[in-house]
Simulated assay, not measured.
Amino acid sequence: MRVLHPSTFDSSTEQGVLRLSIAASFGVAAIAVAFGLYANSSLIIFDGIYGLIDVVMTWLSLLVVRLISLSTNVDALQSRLNQRFTMGFWHLEPIVLGVSGTLMIGAALYAAVNAVDALMSGGREIALGPAIVFAVISIIVESGLALFVRRANRSIGSEFIALDAKNWVVAASMSAAYLVAFGGGWLLRDTDWAWLVPYIDPAILLVVCLFVVVAPLGTVRQALSDILLITPVDLQAHVDEVARGIVAKYGFIEHRSYVAKVGRGDQIELFFVVPANDPPRQLVEWDQLRDEIGEALGEESTDRWLTIMFTTDREWTI
């Protein structure tokens, strides 16, 4: 029987949501660049550049998601890909998230410098009509996509999609700032405050850049923690609690645990020191004990790398 592949933009799958986000991001970015050049607005051009960076990083996120999915597929365990990357692809997830957040911060800092330069040089004259039209279109599209992506991620629970939803919220907030700024400039054109109009574009760009710099900091921090294999305190505590129970139940001497979180993957290594005079057990009994420990640690998942070893020599636990 032939199995049909899910739709390219299936909102119930991580890859489908990311594909939809890529297509929407590219369309919004292209419109932003066109309107920005036409209106001579560095603010709108930055919005387009921000969107293009998001397109590239979301595409990389989609690639990593697919690689992780392939590596955890039992039917593909003997594939050439899995033979070359026997430890899986979980390590790519925090790298992509970290690079994505860092690029966003870098682009914002560069735009902020340009905004300061424009403010010190007398501002920038822009075409307010096209700028206002763009702001309205952007708010509608980006707010709708932010809500859609967030709702889709309730059942998926993906870090990639969560970051993508955050990016759409940031984009919609930026567009709202554009609308306020350009609308205010439109009202001030024929007043005594008309001299402020050229400063509106770079001033709001500077404010937006400061906001964009702050938004990805949490994601970058978590990605760096995963890359450096910093042990999650709560996961370590849970693993040690389960291991201490096993030691007490079976009369083992002690245990050693090594825990790390890499992207969506939990990596756990447990070593139990068994007394040298412990009664011998058949291999099937040791396997049953491993199953007991695995169940106590929590529901088995393709995103968990669990190693359990038993030894009489403490040196093997170091």
Results as ranks from 00 to 15, higher is better:
Thr102Asn: 03
Phe160Ile: 00
Glu142Trp: 06
Leu145Gln: 02
Glu93Arg: 03
Val113Leu: 05
Arg154Phe: 10
Ala171Tyr: 00
Phe85Leu: 15
Val133Ser: 09
Leu63Arg: 13
Glu93Gly: 02
Arg84Glu: 13
Asn167Val: 04
Arg124His: 07
Gly123Pro: 00
Leu187Asn: 10
Asn73Met: 09
Arg189Glu: 14
Ile132His: 03
Phe89Asp: 04
Val113Trp: 12
Gly185Cys: 08
Val169His: 05
Ile137Lys: 01
Ala111Thr: 08
Gly98Trp: 00
Pro130Asn: 06
Val180His: 14
Ala135Trp: 02
Arg150Lys: 13
Ile126Phe: 07
Phe89Glu: 04
Asn114Met: 07
Gly129Val: 13
Trp90Ala: 15
Met174Asn: 10
Gly123Val: 01
Thr191Ala: 02
Leu81Ala: 11
Ala127Phe: 09
Val180Arg: 11
Glu142Thr: 12
Phe85Glu: 14
Val113Lys: 03
Asn82Tyr: 08
Leu188Trp: 09
Ala194Lys: 12
Val96Asp: 00
Gly106Arg: 08
Ala112Ile: 03
Leu97Lys: 08
Asp190Ala: 14
Gly185Leu: 07
Ala176Cys: 14
Ile105Thr: 01
Asp75Phe: 14
Ser173Gln: 09
Ser69Thr: 11
Ile161Met: 11
Thr86Arg: 15
Asn167Asp: 06
Ile137Ser: 02
Val74Leu: 10
Asn153Lys: 00
Met120Phe: 09
Ala146Glu: 05
Asn114Phe: 05
Ala135Gln: 05
Ile156Asn: 01
Ala115Thr: 07
Ala135Val: 11
Ala111Phe: 02
Leu103Val: 15
Val141Lys: 05
Ile68Met: 15
Gly185Thr: 11
Glu159Tyr: 06
Trp186Gly: 06
Ala131Gly: 09
Trp186Tyr: 12
Val65His: 03
Val141Cys: 06
Val141Ile: 13
Tyr178Lys: 12
Thr102Ser: 12
Ala146Leu: 01
Val133Asp: 05
Trp168Glu: 01
Leu97Gln: 12
Gly98Ser: 01
Thr72Glu: 14
Asn167Gly: 08
Leu119Asp: 01
Met120Ser: 05
Trp168Arg: 00
Leu187Met: 14
Ser138Phe: 05
Asn73Phe: 02
Ile68Pro: 01
Ile161Gln: 01
Ile95Gln: 05
Ala135Ser: 14
Ala76Glu: 15
Val65Lys: 00
Gly129Ser: 13
Met174Leu: 10
Ile140Ser: 03
Ala146Ser: 08
Ser79Arg: 10
Phe182Asn: 11
Phe160Gly: 00
Ser100Leu: 03
Val149Gly: 00
Leu188Glu: 11
Ala107Val: 12
Arg154Ser: 09
Ala76Leu: 15
Leu62Asn: 11
Gly106Ala: 14
Asn73Ile: 06
Gln83Phe: 05
Arg150Gln: 11
Leu188Thr: 05
Arg154His: 11
Gly183Arg: 11
Gly183Glu: 11
Val99Asp: 04
Arg154Trp: 10
Ala162Phe: 00
Gly184Leu: 12
Ala127Lys: 13
Trp168Met: 03
Ala152Cys: 10
Val116Gly: 04
Asn73Tyr: 10
Ala177Glu: 07
Trp193Gly: 15
Arg66Ile: 03
Gly144Ser: 07
Thr191Pro: 11
Val74Asp: 13
